[in-house]
């Protein structure tokens, strides 16, 4: 008995959190048993077990894989380009006051506006296919990376720069020994935000500008009232987001070994 209570005490947060999710799923599953839905609504209704069954069927049929690869290709290329562009630009903006001032209006305006407004233009330019998606993923992901890199470079401690200079370091060494290590935690946070934006870009890009991919699968299933398929697709995106976000969080924590406990969650 005491063993059980102390086990509960120790794992309370975990048990309550997971327990609540399980409870909600069970409740959802039981809705048809508890109330009779009117005919019109029954069409839109599904249960977790039916979603799981549909998910399994799509997986066996290979439909999910087919759409998945298309989505992942757009996600990775867009995010890759965003990293390749965002990091160098962030560093340069952080080091040069003039370039910072020159680019500030664009960064502010583009960052405040939801980048999805560009989608119709990209579809017009690149057609319905991977490139319009890559572009929308790119514009979504590049700003968190750029802005966080910039912040990391800007927040470098002047004293540390002086320390390294006092040992005769040149500009490149200052960059390598002080500026980059200081920016790394910021860049990782930027990466976490960028991943979220990139997935958003894939989803919405495929709703409108694609004839393949998980987003397309969701949209076309919805217009055919295949609610199970919609939820199966949403579940994949949820899983993907969670796995990626959690791995980046892990990376954040491992990189934060040198920081005092309290500052880790910034």
């Amino acid at each position: 008995m005491t063993g059980l209570t102390s086990f509960y005490r120790e794992k309370e947060a975990y048990l309550l959190g997971i327990g609540f999710i399980v409870f909600l799923l069970a409740l959802w599953q039981c809705v048809p048993l508890l109330i009779t839905l009117p005919r019109g609504y029954a069409l839109f209704f599904t249960t977790p077990s039916r979603i799981a069954a549909t998910f399994y069927r799509l997986l066996v049929e290979g439909q999910i894989q087919e759409h998945f690869y298309v989505s992942v290709a757009a996600f990775l290329s867009g995010l890759g380009i965003a990293i390749a562009v965002g990091l160098p630009f962030g560093i340069v903006m952080g080091r040069s006051r003039t370039l910072d001032a020159l680019s500030d209006p664009y960064v502010t305006a583009l960052n405040a506006t939801p980048r999805l407004v560009w989608l119709p233009l990209f579809i017009l330019w690149f057609g319905i296919g991977i490139w319009s998606k890559v572009m929308i993923v790119f514009v979504g992901a590049v700003f968190p990376l750029l802005i966080n890199t910039y912040a990391g470079v800007k927040n470098v401690d002047r004293v540390l720069v002086n320390v390294v200079r006092s040992f005769g370091a040149n500009e490149w060494q200052v960059m390598k020994v002080v500026v980059l290590p200081n920016s790394l935690p910021y860049i990782i946070v930027g990466l976490r935000l960028a991943i979220g934006r990139a997935i958003l870009g894939v989803v919405v890009g495929e709703f409108f500008g694609s004839s393949k991919g998980l987003g397309f699968m969701i949209a076309s299933a919805a217009s055919n009232y295949k609610v199970d398929v919609v939820f199966a697709g949403v579940a994949i995106f949820m899983g993907l987001s969670l796995i990626l976000t959690l791995s980046v969080k892990k990376l954040e924590n491992s990189l934060a070994r040198w920081r005092p406990e309290a500052a880790k969650n910034f």
Partner: peptide, 20 residues
């Protein structure tokens, strides 16, 4: 404790996928 895992998962997910 009860709400955090659920809400965190939802916050991290692209809920826009539910739009259709």
């Amino acid at each position: 404790y009860t709400l955090d895992p659920l809400l965190t998962a939802l916050y991290a997910s692209p809920l826009v996928a539910l739009a259709p």
